[in-house]
Amino acid sequence: MALSKPVRTIWDIPREERFAPGHTMCQGCGAAIIMRHLTKVIGKDAIIVQATGCVEVTTTAFPRTSWLNPWLHLAFENAGAGASGVEAALKALKRKGVIDPNRKIKVVAIAGDGGTFDIGLQSLSGMLERGHNVMYVVYDNEAYMNTGIQRSGATPLGAWTTTTPVGKKMRGELRPKKDLIGIALAHRIPYIATASPAYPTDMVEKLRKAYETEGPSLVHIISPCTPGWRIRNEDTIKVARLAVLTGMWVLLEIVNGKPRVTVKVPKRKPVREYLKLQGRFRHLTDEEIARIQKMVDEYVEEINRWVGEQAIGPVEE
């Protein structure tokens, strides 16, 4: 059974584990925590379509699997299209009486940032635009981690990756992160949210709402990557929390176009606290950090204007 009650405290998260151990994800992997909670929410009657990526290769090395749900992987760029096909088939087979029309079977697409922001964007757009009843979950570790930390459209400004190296002329990623939420919004889908594994009740509640939504929903979850972000295995949650507390990652929920900040941050920490924990930002000078701080200040201002309140407060040293 899928989780049907609202999640207010940690005790509302189901105890049953539906993400089997034995996978080969790294110690401290953010995505592993996300998958564990996602499978708790969706229960048995969900079909998962997964894009190629870290989670796919680490959980399905034949003959082992971590998945207790029917699970399909086709390729890197087509989680949206595959999920559309499953959903259309369920619809037709229910209408024709092959599958019990009263049985709720949800389709869940899972992809990383590469499979969503970059190579999978077209297939995601098609799926959202056509209004398929699919819940799409993005675990965003901000680079192509599975192939060894290459820059993606989700890589943040200044971050070192193997394809945005820190050299004499160029110092890490030159562009800010692509606005995926803006792209999802433009499709006018009923439910969009951002989440963080550092806020599990908020994340699980959002996954639950996305699951309950009739029509396309998208949950965009930040997923710290220990080797890729150059962080200590035990710092995953700390870093994920600091992303929120510094305003680099705002926990949003947009229901039918109406935005809300679900975890308010009355007093922000400076971005330096988030950056300094991560090897991928180690090269940044005070000047470069100031530039990122300014970018985040503007982003926070934009969010506050959008939600119509001071959801994220000023920086307090």
């Binding site: 595959g82 559309s84 088939a89 087979l93 297939s123």
Partner: peptide, 23 residues
């Protein structure tokens, strides 16, 4: 169910997934 896909890559992806679902 007719899926008006946004390209042939998705067309084949969608029908493979639909076939896997029993359609």
């Amino acid at each position: 169910e007719v899926i008006h896909v946004e390209g042939e890559h998705s067309a084949l992806s969608a029908v493979v997934a639909a076939a896997a679902t029993g359609a």
